[in-house]
Design a protein around this nucleic acid. Structure first.
Lengths: 172, 172
DNA sequence: AACTCCATGTGATTTTATAACGTTACGCGT
DNA sequence: ACGCGTAACGTTATAAAATCACATGGAGTT
C-alpha cells in the first residue's frame, strides 16, 4: 500500500480496497463520522471503542481479535480477550466494522454510515480485503430464499481469490 | 458441470433443505455417488472418510468438527481432533461436504457431483441449513470484482434468517 | 447520596484448529 | 512377492479463537 497520494477524487462508492487513498484523511473522517453517529444515536463511543476503530482504520486490513487485543494493551487498555471482543462487538453491531468470517478477523467498514449488505474480496496471497456491496434480495440467493420461504436477515458474502496486483505477479 | 445441468438462468430454485425427503435414499445414493466419484478420480474413500460422510448425511444439518469427532470415536476410529479435521478436509476438498463459515460447522453437499458455488440459508432459530446455488460472476459481487480486477476463485455465501417453519411460529 | 445501568477489567474455561511425529497401509514398479 | 515411496492414520501436545462469570467503577438519574 503506497502512501503518497493526498487527493481522493471520489468518496466511498467503489471498491475501496485495492487502491491507494488518503489514509490519514479516511481515518479522521471515519472517526468523526462515528463520533457524530454515536452522538446522534445516544451510543457511548468510549475510549476503547474509539481506539479499536482507529486501529482498524490504520491497518486497513482484516485483523484478528487477538492482534487487536495486543494493540489495545499497548495503548493502555485491558489485556484479556473480552476487552477486544467487546470493542469489536460494539463496532460490528453499529456498522463501524465487519467481521470476515472466512478469516475470523475484523475490518473497518469502508462505507460508514450507509445501510448496506457488505461483500468482501479477499486476496489469498497478500490477505488484503476490499469491501463492495452485495444485493442479497436479487440474484440466485434471493430467488432461492423466496422460493423456499426463507426470510433473509443478514448475509455473509466473501469472495476469495487474487487481487489485481497479486494476479499480475502470479502471471509473470 | 454435470451432464444434466442445463445453463438456464435460474438454477437456484430447488431449496433442498427445509423440506422432508427420502432420508435413507438420499444417504445411500450420496454414498454411492461418492464411491463412484472417488473410483473415477483415483481418490481413496477410506473407512473414516466414508463414515464421516455418512454421519453428515444422516444428520442432514451442520455439525461441528468435535461433534464429528465424537461420532467417529463411537464408530471405532481415533479420538483426537485431527481425525475429524482430516476427514472433513477431504470431504470438503472433493466437494462432498461444505464448511459453513458462519457456524464453524460442516454439512454434506446437497448437490453432489455438480460443480457449483454453494450458497446457504441458515435459520437462526432451529439451526437448519439449506443449500442453494449462487452465481458469483453475476450480480453485484461479480461486477465489483470485474471493476476491481479481482479474480474470484471461491465464494462464501451464507444468509442468516428464518426458515419457513420458524418464521411461521414467530409470526404467531 | 443512593440507585441503576452499562462498560471495563480480570481470571478461568470452553471451543475450534493445527503442529509435529511415529507407524501403518496402499500403490506401484521391478 | 519384494521393496520403495507416498499418503493416511493415530497420538500427544499446543495454538488460536471465543465465551463465561464475577468484581469494580463511572455516568446519569432520582
Amino acid at each position: 500500500m503506497t502512501s503518497g497520494d493526498t487527493s481522493h477524487p471520489s468518496p466511498a462508492t467503489e471498491p475501496v480496497g485495492f487502491e491507494t487513498h488518503d489514509h490519514a484523511g479516511c481515518i479522521a473522517s471515519a472517526l468523526a463520522a462515528a463520533d457524530a453517529h454515536c452522538q446522534r444515536e445516544g451510543l457511548r463511543f468510549t475510549p476503547v471503542r474509539r481506539q479499536a476503530l482507529e486501529i482498524l482504520l490504520q491497518e486497513h486490513r482484516a485483523i484478528g481479535a487477538y492482534e487487536m487485543l495486543d494493540r489495545l494493551r499497548d495503548a493502555g487498555f485491558g489485556s484479556q480477550p473480552p476487552v477486544a471482543y467487546r470493542a469489536l462487538e460494539f463496532l460490528v453491531a453499529h456498522g463501524f466494522a465487519h467481521k470476515i468470517e472466512r478469516l475470523n478477523a475484523f475490518i473497518a467498514c469502508a462505507h460508514p454510515g450507509a445501510e448496506h449488505s457488505p461483500a468482501f474480496m479477499i486476496c489469498r496471497l497478500c490477505q488484503s480485503v476490499a469491501e463492495a456491496q452485495s444485493t442479497p434480495s436479487r440474484g440466485a440467493l434471493g430467488d432461492a430464499a423466496r422460493a423456499a420461504g426463507f426470510q433473509i436477515e443478514r448475509t455473509v458474502v466473501e469472495a476469495e481469490g487474487l487481487c489485481p496486483s497479486c494476479a499480475e505477479k502470479a502471471d509473470a
